[in-house]
Design a protein around this nucleic acid. Structure first.
Length: 304
DNA sequence: TCGCAGGTGGTCG
DNA sequence: CGACCACCTGCG
C-alpha cells in the first residue's frame, strides 16, 4: 500500500498522544517508537510524526497559577512551526477520502482554541495541556458500538471488548506487520446474534443493548439526530452525547461523565450532582464549541 | 472480599 | 420526575 506523507500541519494543533488518548477512540495502540497503529474506516494504518519542533511535542504539562497569570495575555499554542505526519499502509486516495477528514485536518484548531481561551482561566489551562487534541470524524456505527460498550466500564476492558467483537464477528481489515486486524461487525451481522453467541466477547449486560440497537438500525437505519439516538437501547444522555460528538459532528455536544463531573465540581465549583447546571454552564459559556471544550477539560482532569 | 470503572434501565415515592 | 439500585466483568 505504501506510505503517505502529510506536511505543514501546525505543530501546536496536532499531537498523536493527545488525539488518541483523550477518550474519543479505543482502537489505536501506541508502538514502541511513539507511533500509533489502528484500524478505522475499514483500513489498518500506522501514524507517526517524523518531523517537527520537539519543544511543541512535549511542552510543560502543568503550569502554576502564577504562570497561568502570565499566560493570560498569550495566545494558545499554535504558532510554533509545523510537523510532518507519516501514514504507513496508505496511498494518496485513502488519505484524501479517509484520513484527512478522519483527522479533521480541514479545521482550524488554533482558532477554536483562541475563542475558547477567552472564556476562562480553567479552559485555558486545559488547552495548554492538551493543545494537540483533534476531534476525529469516526464512523457512526462504530462510534455507537464503542460508546454503548463504554458505559460503566474501564478503558482496558472497553478496548478488549471491542477487539473481541471485531475478531470474533467482523471481517478482515488486512494484515499489517504480520498481524491481522478486523473491522467491527455490521448491524445486520450483530442483529442476528444471540446473547449466548456474544458470550466470548465478555460484554456483560451490554450484549443485550448492542443486539437491540443493531436490530433497530436494521429496521430504521442509522440515527440522524439526538432524539433517534436517545431512543436506542443502552443509549442514555452521556452515550448519546459521545456518539453525537464523535460520530455525527455535533460539536455542541457536551458529554458529562464522571470525569467531567469532577472538573465541573472541582474547577468550576458546580455541585457534583447537578448535571443540569453543568449542561447550562457548557451551553452558555462554550456554546457551539462545547465538544471541543469537553475534550480539553476531560484530558486535563484525567492528568491531575 | 469488596469497591470500582468514561451509565443506563427499571422501579418506587 | 427525581432518587435509588442492580448490573457483567476484571482488576487492585
Amino acid at each position: 500500500m505504501g506510505q503517505f506523507i502529510v506536511k505543514n500541519i501546525p505543530a501546536g494543533d496536532f499531537n498523536l498522544d493527545h488525539i488518541f488518548d483523550c477518550g474519543q477512540c479505543f482502537r489505536w495502540d501506541k508502538q514502541d517508537d511513539g507511533s500509533y497503529t489502528g484500524v478505522a474506516m475499514g483500513r489498518v494504518v500506522n501514524m507517526k510524526v517524523i518531523e517537527g519542533c520537539t519543544c511543541c511535542q512535549s511542552p510543560a504539562t502543568e503550569i502554576s497559577d502564577q504562570m497561568a497569570a502570565i499566560f493570560e495575555n498569550l495566545k494558545p499554542k499554535g504558532n510554533y512551526g509545523n510537523i510532518t505526519l507519516l501514514i504507513d499502509n496508505c496511498n494518496e486516495e485513502d488519505f484524501l477520502n479517509i484520513w484527512k477528514p478522519y483527522l479533521d485536518l480541514n479545521r482550524d484548531y488554533g482558532k477554536i482554541k483562541s475563542i475558547l481561551s477567552e472564556e476562562d482561566y480553567i479552559i485555558r489551562k486545559a488547552i495548554n495541556y492538551g493543545y494537540g487534541i483533534r476531534i476525529l470524524n469516526q464512523d457512526l456505527w462504530e462510534t455507537m458500538v464503542s460508546f454503548i460498550i463504554s458505559q460503566n466500564n474501564n478503558i482496558p476492558r472497553i478496548k478488549g471488548c471491542i477487539e473481541n467483537l471485531a475478531s470474533n464477528f467482523g471481517t478482515s481489515a488486512g494484515i499489517y506487520k504480520g498481524k491481522e486486524y478486523f473491522n467491527l461487525p455490521t448491524p445486520s451481522v450483530l442483529a442476528k446474534l444471540s446473547i449466548e453467541d456474544l458470550g466470548p466477547v465478555k460484554l456483560g449486560y451490554r450484549a443485550r443493548y448492542l443486539i437491540e440497537t443493531a436490530k433497530s438500525v436494521c429496521a430504521n437505519g442509522l440515527p440522524s439526530n439526538m432524539e433517534e439516538l436517545s431512543s436506542l437501547c443502552g443509549v442514555g444522555p452521556k452515550v448519546a452525547n459521545c456518539i453525537g460528538l464523535f460520530g455525527m459532528s455535533k460539536y455542541d455536544s457536551f458529554p458529562i461523565d464522571v470525569w467531567v463531573r469532577r472538573v465541573m465540581q472541582t474547577l468550576y465549583g458546580i455541585d457534583e450532582k447537578d448535571i443540569k447546571a453543568m449542561e447550562t454552564y457548557a451551553t452558555e459559556n462554550f456554546g457551539n464549541y462545547g465538544g471541543f471544550a469537553q475534550q480539553y477539560l476531560f484530558y486535563y482532569i484525567r492528568s491531575l
